[in-house]
Nucleic acid binder design. Structure first.
Lengths: 216, 216
DNA sequence: GTCTATACATGGATAGAC
DNA sequence: GTCTATCCATGTATAGAC
């Protein structure tokens, strides 16, 4: 791994951007030192000089890309105060990131992580950046809701993040199906939101029912 | 594409099984005519003789594998009559298929479908086998629930299928995180289930709230 | 320290042997 | 009709030029 001179940094950045472009446009199966270097406009061997191996480049690109994308939405997520507002922001993120493919990218890396050992931890870390933000919002938003008590924001945040990745991959093969899925989840969110609006008697009924049937 | 003599069929079957094994064990990135043929125990060139190209073999393997796996759970899903029962069956499917990797396989194919043109429709078709079954169950189970009215089983089924794939991929890089996610979704299901148990007054309140805030 | 030329491995596809 | 030997493209990695 090379030191941080100005020239080195420039080439590294080119390679990182090239890796992200290649992963989103061609997928993990077509991502190689050659294809990435071509996208970056540099010699193929520089991948190995600057990052040691293709996998390590992809791992670095994952951290780099995920941090950059999450940073873009951190302030907006921090401002969310209700579940329906969260759903709106979620839909917004989907619309904006679909074009750039920044979410499907995590899907490509998750698929690749199956074999490429070094990729697993890096991808988990990239997803965690999203999970941390989602969990913070859910903790705030679901505090008063039966969900906050029974499901727990930590698990829900992981479910939301992983599901999002799955739907984003699904969109690649069936765009209208993916839209239907997102619409349904939005409505599901409204139904959960409706629980907050119930009177105290009904809320107690729900909680009582949950305490009886819940398994944990 | 070769005709259906006994010997041809045998080689084809070997290749299909080899493709499934390679995809689940090595991932889409390491899946090639050579690796698949090695897993199948046949000469590499037979991929091209029997299926024309690697992509077409993978597409065929997707149909083959998905049909076989879905068939295994079709009767059990058909017997489901409540949401909580559906959740139990879902968890069962997860436990049983995790070992074989039959769900993550769809993730690998979704990742690969990004570029391999022929793979997209085949993967969508494979996912649809699951979606059809899930949708039938949801239609039955959610008929009486606000979700049936507002979200619609078609969209929900697609959301469930895609989310499952995402979580299954996520499990590859963070097993405990994936378990937390599944637990949370199970609890979410119980909360939805609790809505069914509400008295008519509370049910009307929920529906009224939804009609006001719903966007469609 | 940075990068290019080059060696060696793996993958895709076909001409022709059986 | 079924399969093998072989060719060329692509991928990984390094020795050595600048």
């Amino acid at each position: 791994m090379s030191p941080e001179t100005a020239k080195s940094l420039e080439t590294k950045t080119k390679l990182l951007d090239g890796a992200l472009r290649t992963l989103t446009e061609q997928g993990i199966a077509k991502t190689s030192a050659r294809t990435v270097a071509a996208a970056a406009g540099v010699n193929q061997a520089l991948v190995f000089y600057h990052f040691g191996s293709v996998d390590e480049l992809l791992a670095a690109a994952c951290r780099y890309g995920a941090e950059r994308t999450v940073a873009r939405y951190r302030p907006r997520l921090a401002a969310v105060t209700s579940l329906s507002e969260l759903l709106t922001v979620g839909r917004e993120i989907h619309e904006q990131e679909r074009a750039g493919g920044h979410v499907a990218l995590l899907g490509q890396l998750l698929a690749g992580a199956q074999t490429h050992e070094t990729l697993g931890p890096a991808t988990a870390a990239g997803l965690d950046l999203w999970i941390v933000e989602i969990e913070k919002v859910l903790t705030r938003v679901l505090a008063a809701t039966p969900l906050g008590e029974f499901a727990g924001p930590a698990g829900l945040a992981r479910a939301v993040a992983a599901s999002f990745v799955g739907i984003e991959l699904y969109e690649g093969v069936d765009a209208t199906g993916a839209t239907a899925a997102l619409d349904a989840l939005e409505q599901l969110g409204f139904v959960i939101g409706a629980l907050e609006q119930l009177g105290p008697v009904a809320q107690r009924a729900v909680r009582h029912h949950l305490r009886r049937t819940s398994r944990r």
